[in-house]
Design a protein around this nucleic acid. Structure first.
Length: 720
DNA sequence: AGAGGCTGTCATAAG
DNA sequence: TACTTATGACAGCCT
């Protein structure tokens, strides 16, 4: 493209040579999505002018927005200051804002900031921020309450000093690094925040001062802008917290404590856990409360208001998720989504792709095209399998027969559309076939097809006859029973491939070919032993056609076809075979056939049906054989496993017996009678009762020792 | 030339 | 009873 800049002459009217060159180059670059206007100087200038105008408009809009935002901020700041000065007094020494003794009235709410649904969100945000940021210190410059350490990513990595009696509430971002040593759980079972109710103000201040000193000493340099933003953030936090609580602010710790209690007892804000969750999100107080739930936090969802939840990641919903992300972006929320972006959004709906509504992707830049591919990995994957559009073009005649593409004007559709639309016609076949009866081969399409253009098998049918197919040797060489290659070869060989599939897979609850495992897969569920053929379409016929246009042999099917012609029967063999019973009977009744014709028609139909039945039968047989083989393998492995288990159990039993015997001998030989002599093993034995006690029992005792005279037995404990 | 596999067809039973 | 489906058996063709 850089060359073009040099080629285009400076004058406005290019000469003919230039135009020719432009034409050639444009043709070369058309696959890159470069429009012809690029080469037209005037057109390009005009486009540039339009772009500049749009850009200016956009800038103007942005300026207005910024202005409105600044106004809002200023108004809020003034309100805050007024309210602070009304309800707080500033400590002269420390610069700290100390609340007055009276009950603090809530400040007039800023309707643009705190309205209804935003309140709860706002509450949790403030709580978390306040508790996380500790108590305010007065900024010596502004006199406002400010914080010395802020929610800065830098802060999360600062070693947190942990005073012995003060539990520093950790930012969620740092929770993983510094676990809270003493989690408190509220009534709802959520982990609550730890506060310091036993501390008075001075203690608090001391603790905070300690912390802040260390923070200040270790904190990274903060820019004035950051500092201002933090002050802003805290001011609002402080103000809104007090507003909402309406507390008599006797001291800061009480306020925090009470606010904590309120948080724990108030509806949706009852969970400190939720507060923590909120902290994890980048919340701008005056932004929309639309929040995306943290994927790891179930409770956060209760805080979502007016949020568009991501739809479940089910069918083709990558894009929905993408849309939600887009909704979250401030650009989108403020209506500044660029038209081009919107176009992209609209043009890359996966549903449209799958529903054969062709998205206009031809206008995409390569980057856009790539991104849309990323959104739809399935589609892109299938497209990427073809290395280029030219490859796709080359493959098309192989993948789809001419008949399939009949009526589809590829030139009008454009290459991209063709690529994306490869599947819908085929799927349509499948859908229609699936709605047919189990064994019915002929779809309405096929019938129409046969009537209008003649059966594709006409003249090519027969058990040994050929099928006229322009397939390359490579394609037709694919095994008939190779599930992996089936679709390809079948698409090549038989125009009604999916019908065939449906036919032969109906009886045995087959899974689709697309989900078939490899032929070596021992899981019988994935076996594919189908015979997906049309009546009269012999896979061998396809093989036979390698390099031949004329069939070598004339099979029975072809013979039938000839006889149909000879008998002047106005139907094709396929029609005769595949027509539903009602239609077939209608035809037979409406046409006045002679006996010979009727007999031929019935024979053809019977043979055709039987042929399909034979296919199904063989398929079933193969399925059964494979299934039985699999079952046999499984049973053999089960048997081996059980043998192994039995061996192990026997071994353990032997070992236990040996141990038991040794223990028995040891105990028995350690026993002595009243004379100090060992017992005779032939006359006595040890027995254990149900309660675990061990008895020495004379050999002639056959019943349980508990039932006999205690004189004849000696009770022993388990351990002597 | 023979073996083995695949397919179409027939006969028959069953639904 | 007619039709369809399932299946064993057989024959032809191909590799």
């Amino acid at each position: 493209m850089m060359e073009l800049e040099n080629i285009v002459p400076p004058r406005n009217q290019p000469v003919k040579q230039d135009l020719d060159l432009i034409e050639v180059l444009w043709r070369q670059d058309i696959d890159l999505g470069v429009g012809k206007e690029v080469f037209d100087v005037n057109l390009r200038r005009q486009l540039e002018r339009e772009r500049e105008i749009d850009l200016a408009k956009e800038r103007q809009k942005q300026k207005e927005l910024e202005l409105a935002q600044a106004k809002q901020d200023e108004q809020r700041r003034q309100q805050q200051q007024r309210w602070l000065s009304d309800n707080f007094t500033q400590d002269g020494e420390t610069g700290e804002w100390v609340p007055l003794g009276r009950r603090v009235p809530p400040p007039p709410p800023a309707p643009d900031l705190m309205t209804n649904g935003q309140m709860q969100n706002f509450l949790s945000y403030d709580y978390e921020q306040l508790l996380n940021e500790d108590l305010p210190q007065t900024d010596p410059n502004t006199g406002y309450p400010s914080v010395s350490h802020q929610q800065s990513p830098v802060n999360h990595h600062i070693p947190q000093p942990s005073p012995p009696h003060y539990s520093q509430h950790q930012h969620q971002g740092s929770q993983q690094n510094v676990p809270n040593p003493q989690p408190i759980y509220n009534n709802h079972g959520y982990q609550t925040l730890q506060v310091v109710p036993q501390y008075n103000n001075s203690q608090m201040q001391e603790g905070y001062s300690t912390q802040m000193n260390s923070y200040n000493s270790s904190m990274t340099q903060v820019s004035p802008q950051q500092r201002y933003a933090r002050q802003e953030s805290f001011e609002q936090t402080w103000q809104d917290l007090v507003n909402l609580l309406e507390l008599p602010l006797q001291n800061n710790s009480q306020m925090v404590n009470q606010s904590q209690r309120m948080t724990n007892t108030s509806g949706q804000l009852s969970s400190g856990h939720m507060i923590m969750t909120r902290m994890n999100t980048t919340t701008v107080p005056n932004s929309s409360p639309v929040m995306m739930p943290s994927p790891t936090d179930n409770t956060s969802s209760v805080l979502i208001q007016n949020a568009t939840l991501p739809t479940p990641p089910a069918v083709s919903d990558n894009f929905t998720g993408f849309n939600n992300t887009e909704m979250m972006s401030p650009v989108h929320n403020s209506g500044l989504l660029s038209p081009s972006r919107q176009n992209n959004t609209m043009s890359s709906q996966p549903g449209q792709n799958y529903n054969s509504t062709v998205p206009n992707t031809s206008g995409m830049t390569p980057i856009e095209w790539e991104s849309s591919n990323m959104l739809f990995p399935n589609i892109s994957g299938s497209i990427n399998q073809t290395e280029s559009l030219e490859d796709v073009d080359e493959l098309l005649p192989e993948l789809i027969t001419e008949d399939d593409l009949d009526g589809i004007n590829l030139a009008e559709m454009g290459i991209n559309d063709t690529v994306i639309n490869l599947s819908p016609p085929i799927k349509k076949h499948s859908d229609e076939a699936s709605s047919d009866s189990a064994m019915s081969i002929g779809s309405p399409e096929q019938d129409t097809f046969s009537e209008s253009t003649g059966s594709p098998y006409d003249g090519l049918e027969g058990a040994t006859g050929g099928h006229d197919c322009d397939s390359s040797p490579g394609s037709s060489k694919t095994s008939k029973y190779d599930p992996d290659d089936y679709n390809f070869s079948h698409s090549c060989s038989y125009s009604h491939s999916e019908n065939g599939h449906s036919n032969y897979s109906s009886s045995f609850n087959d899974t689709g070919y697309g989900s078939q495992g490899s032929p070596t897969d021992t899981n019988h569920i994935h076996h594919n032993h189908s015979y997906p053929l049309q009546p009269g379409a012999d896979p061998k016929d396809v093989k036979k056609q390698i390099g031949n246009d004329k069939p070598k042999h004339k099979g029975p099917h072809c013979r039938d076809h000839k006889r149909v012609i000879e008998m002047k029967i106005p139907f094709t063999v396929d029609q005769i075979v595949n027509l539903p019973v009602e239609e077939f009977n209608d035809i037979m009744s409406h046409h006045k056939f002679n006996e010979q014709q009727i007999q031929l028609i019935r024979d053809i139909r019977r043979r055709g049906k039987n042929k399909v039945a034979a296919h199904n039968c063989r398929k079933r047989k193969m399925d059964i054989i494979y299934t039985l083989g699999d079952e046999m393998q499984k049973l053999e492995s089960d048997r081996d496993r059980l043998i192994q288990e039995r061996f192990m159990i026997d071994k353990e039993t032997r070992e236990l017996k040996e141990k038991f015997g040794a223990l028995y001998q040891e105990i028995f030989h350690s026993l002595r009678d009243e004379h100090g002599r060992p017992y005779d093993p032939a006359r006595f034995s040890l027995q254990q009762s149900s309660d675990g006690d061990v008895f020495l029992v004379p050999r002639n005792f056959t019943t349980a020792p508990e039932n006999h005279d205690d004189k004849n037995k000696k009770r022993k404990n388990d351990k002597k």
